[in-house]
């Protein structure tokens, strides 16, 4: 029915760029959000390396052993946690934005409607990349020693951006499905815990059966295993394929859901 013309596409692209600029300005004006979002995974990284790292590292039984071994093990999990924490921020800023009158104005303008959402997504992905860079830097300072070459680093970065893109679309929908900003900040909370219930902090083999099965089949385990494999040379197996499949699925579902929520008739 709809013919996607180049004109429609270029309008969607242009309007998305405009909305991205708006999102970035919001981040600059409201930096406490960004600081909180990046601060949380950094705190978890320090906590796990320095408080729990000695004991947990011994349990891993690797060649290096102890804290150094654990810093390597936990860093990829913390990177995924950075993406999840960022998703929480996305949901909050989307929920806050939807209460603003300017959104109603956008709805009465001849613009590509989806650009209101893509502006948020692109802004959040940029924020996630910023967070990932900071967390990687801190991880390197506390003993994270990746063995990857340039290709490995680039591949890992690509995978992380892909995952961030997918999770962000989902969190945009989460930010709109709730009625209040408070609810929007709670809804993505489970995402932050998924690295714990996967291979992020300890190997799933050490968990009781129910948890282990959950860990094996939830998306964060292949996410973490892929990043870990790319950076540290551990076996990746089918994790890479699973990661791409999960990301594509989550991104598509999030996109369709978010778009449907945004096109709902605004409350009277």
């Amino acid at each position: 029915m709809t013919l996607v013309t180049t004109k429609t596409l270029s309008r969607a692209f242009g309007d998305s760029t405009t909305m991205l600029r708006r999102s970035l300005k919001h981040m600059v004006r409201y930096p406490s959000m960004t600081v909180t979002l990046i601060g949380m995974p950094v705190v978890f990284l320090l906590l796990f390396v320095y408080v729990f790292g000695g004991t947990l590292g011994a349990g891993l039984g690797g060649a290096a052993g102890g804290r150094a071994e654990y810093a390597n093990y936990v860093a990829p999990g913390i990177l995924l946690m950075t993406i999840a924490a960022n998703a929480q921020g996305t949901a909050i800023s989307v929920a806050m934005d939807m209460t603003e009158g300017v959104i109603a104005r956008f709805r009465t303008m001849a613009i590509a409607r989806v650009s209101v959402l893509t502006g948020h997504v692109l802004g959040s992905v940029i924020q996630a990349v910023l967070g990932l860079a900071v967390v990687t830097g801190v991880a390197l300072l506390v003993g994270f020693r990746p063995t990857a070459g340039l290709a490995g680093w680039l591949a890992a970065a690509g995978v992380l951006v892909l995952i961030a893109f997918a999770i962000t679309w989902l969190s945009v929908a989460l930010g709109m499905v709730t009625k209040t900003v408070e609810a929007a900040s709670n809804l993505p909370m489970p995402l932050v815990f998924l690295p714990f219930l996967g291979s992020g902090f300890v190997p799933p083999e050490s968990m009781p059966t129910v948890l282990r099965v959950f860990a094996e089949y939830q998306p964060f385990t292949p996410f973490i295993e892929t990043v870990r494999g790319l950076l540290l040379g551990t076996p990746i197996g089918n994790s890479a394929v699973l990661t791409v499949a999960w990301s594509a699925g989550i991104a598509l579902a999030g996109y369709v859901w978010a778009k449907a929520l945004f096109n709902r008739e605004p409350a009277a």
């Binding site: 708006r22 300005k25 919001h26 004006r29 409201y30 603003e100 009158g101 300017v102 109603a104 104005r105 009465t108 303008m109 001849a110």
Partner: peptide, 16 residues
């Protein structure tokens, strides 16, 4: 939409 301008009861501006 291309032909109209709207000013609402509650200012539709971007506060940030």
């Amino acid at each position: 939409r291309a032909a109209i301008g709207v000013t609402g009861q509650f200012a539709a501006v971007d506060n940030l």
